[in-house]
Simulated assay, not measured.
Amino acid sequence: MIVQDLGLIEYDAAHDIQLERRDAVEAGADETLFLLEHQPVVTIGRTGRAQGLTVPESVLTERGITVRHTERGGDATCHFPGQLVAYVVFRLAKRPGGVRAFVQFLEQCAIDVCAECGVSAHRREGFPGVWTDGGKIASIGLGVRRWVSYHGLALNVGADLGPFEWVVPCGIAGARATSIDLEHRRLAESAGRPYPEPIPMEHVKHAFVQAFRTHQAASPVAAGEAPRQ
């Protein structure tokens, strides 16, 4: 597995990179995990509808906010500096459980990262992604072509979640977004403590790679076992 940090990058540039890598992985190249942050962008998945936006797409464009319709699953979401995006270009044909199990794999990586950062997070039945008592902290939307995945996961890290004003998180009316830093602030307020220092993005990236490698090494495919259907 290759891990590549793309830093802060425009959505279109990262999209081109992962499409090129998807084709290479299908042809036999090493599976690849891309880590990055995006300049502000709203993406709308295959099942996305206008109701997933809180303002018209034309208004976002007029404000200089990039809007892109993508091949991933899911509704509308947003990406911005302070949010860790993980694009996963992996072969799924021999993975037990296929796409569904891979989504759960990514959810568990995010849950582990949150725990390592002192935040309790969990799954929510019927809604892909990761949640805390304060709201949704990570979103997942995969694209799969010829059994090779691309797109992936977005984990909110920083306290500024202003871009979520543009979308309905997970397409669920009334749902709130939260982040690692906001959860730390919420816990500090409840305990009457000062706000802690923000978690550095590099720390979160490192924790994500560690969690990913741990669960990848434990999978039957990585261990060389026959996949179970």
Rank of each mutant, 00 (worst) to 15 (best):
I2H: 12
L6F: 15
G7R: 03
D12M: 08
I17K: 01
D30W: 01
L35E: 15
Q39D: 15
Q39I: 02
R46C: 14
R49K: 15
G52K: 00
T54R: 15
T54V: 07
V55T: 12
P56N: 13
C78F: 04
Y87F: 13
L92F: 00
L92V: 08
A93K: 13
K94I: 04
P96N: 09
R100W: 05
V103T: 02
Q104N: 08
F105E: 06
L106K: 01
E107C: 02
C109T: 02
C109Q: 03
V113L: 12
E116V: 01
V119Y: 12
V119F: 12
H122D: 10
R123Y: 09
E125P: 00
F127N: 09
F127A: 12
P128V: 09
W131N: 10
T132G: 05
D133R: 10
D133V: 02
G134C: 05
G135A: 06
G141H: 10
G141K: 04
V148S: 14
H151T: 08
L153A: 07
A154Y: 06
N156K: 04
L161F: 09
E165R: 08
W166M: 02
V168G: 05
C170K: 02
A175D: 03
R185D: 14
R186P: 00
P196A: 02
E197S: 13
P200I: 04
P200R: 03
K205I: 05
H206M: 12
H206W: 07
H206P: 05
F212Q: 11
H215N: 09
V221Q: 13
V221H: 08
A222C: 11
A226L: 14
A226G: 02
P227M: 12
